[in-house]
Design a protein around this nucleic acid. Structure first.
Lengths: 206, 206
DNA sequence: TGATTGATTGACTCGTCAATCAATAAAAAT
DNA sequence: ATTTTTATTGATTGACGAGTCAATCAATCA
């Protein structure tokens, strides 16, 4: 093989090109040829490495999910208190490179893909569970038994802001979205203004 | 056909068949032939009445938006207080015939369509604005200047619950969704400070 | 050096689908 | 009764796209 170890590079290039193409087209109606051309190779080679269009799409999806997971992990790493942990998740959700027109369009279309493709559904379910778990873990010390429920609400809210962002017209930027989320989440916590109340409840719970 | 005035019937049948097909396929990759067959006619006739696939899809979209608008209007009609008006909107959002797997799948795909189709984008924008307006109108007497902001949050939350519902696994029913929304909205209203804390502690104990 | 093997592609197949059209049937209008 | 209008479809066309394959090309290894 000429130039050994080209495979991972090609795969990476194809995955990135796929996300770009989906962003440009706004749908999954993206030809393998276009993806391959954007990645600088022939469509035959794309098939050679991935086996088929479906698997290219799934790889792109996994890539985005990993990207998001990494961002969450990185943001959470420096969080000390539950409140900081919660905010870290919000930051990860609305900071680049996640809250980009391209990536948001991809998310939206992955939801569509999950309608017909079991593996895509599985991936999204895993993402959803992990987000729920992270949120609940951060919320429990603050709101106790209500954590799961509130995590569900925040999760839905994040998804909602994402989908609305996909209609660029009248949508807000990542910073605005983050601010809105923070405000709303704040309202859901005990003693919205003073964090003291939160600590009280926290103490009572644990 | 002989039988004059068949056109509206055919159009209606095609629109309903389109929604069903989108629901079944989970995507917009729905052939005109399949739609037409389900509606009991040839694909050529579908083209004859609508001019093309795109316009069939847009007609289906308009149908769903009108359905939703009618439901909201109908629910709001009997509302006396702002709180009732607010609840009416929530009921309209999560009651059949709006909160159906079929219709939800259609919504999701219309968001995708809006990525590429200006008319679809326009329709969704109109829907969004109307929802925002209705929510704000109901909220203003309750929260004053914060109405617009809170309306935005509730709107996003509704969209988020919808999109999550589209992944049937682990999703909640319409009643649960409605209950969750009510609880959340309740927390966003004034007087929630006292009620909230009480509820919190109460919830922690039960 | 020469065999091996991965990398790479152009050309081709096969299927699908949107859109069109010519033809037919039948009610309505004249 | 004949013409017009509306309804309807089977057949066809033209385009496009996924996937395959046989054939190169070049680095590595024995």
């Amino acid at each position: 093989m000429p130039k050994l170890g080209v495979e991972p590079i090609r795969r990476q290039a194809l995955v990135k090109a796929t996300i770009t193409e989906i962003g440009a087209a706004g749908s999954l109606d993206v030809t393998v040829s276009k993806i391959a051309r954007r990645a600088g190779m022939s469509s035959a080679l794309a098939h050679h490495y991935f086996g088929g269009k479906e698997q290219i799409l799934l790889a792109a999806m996994r890539h985005i999910l990993v990207l998001f997971a990494d961002e969450v992990r990185s943001q959470i790493a420096s969080a000390r208190t539950p409140a900081e942990r919660l905010d870290a998740i919000l930051r990860a959700s609305f900071a680049s490179p996640n809250f980009t027109a391209e990536v948001i369009a991809a998310w939206l279309n992955f939801y569509v893909l999950a309608q017909a493709n079991p593996e895509a559904l599985r991936l999204l379910t895993v993402y959803r569970r992990r987000l729920q778990s992270n949120l609940t873990y951060a919320l429990r010390p603050m709101v106790g038994a209500a954590a799961a429920d509130k995590a569900e609400v925040i999760g839905a809210l994040i998804d909602g802001v994402y989908i609305r962002q996909s209609l660029r017209a009248g949508a807000m930027g990542g910073d605005d979205a983050l601010a809105m989320l923070r405000r709303t989440v704040d309202h859901m916590l005990p003693g919205a203004d003073q964090r003291k109340t939160a600590e009280m409840v926290d103490g009572a719970m644990t």
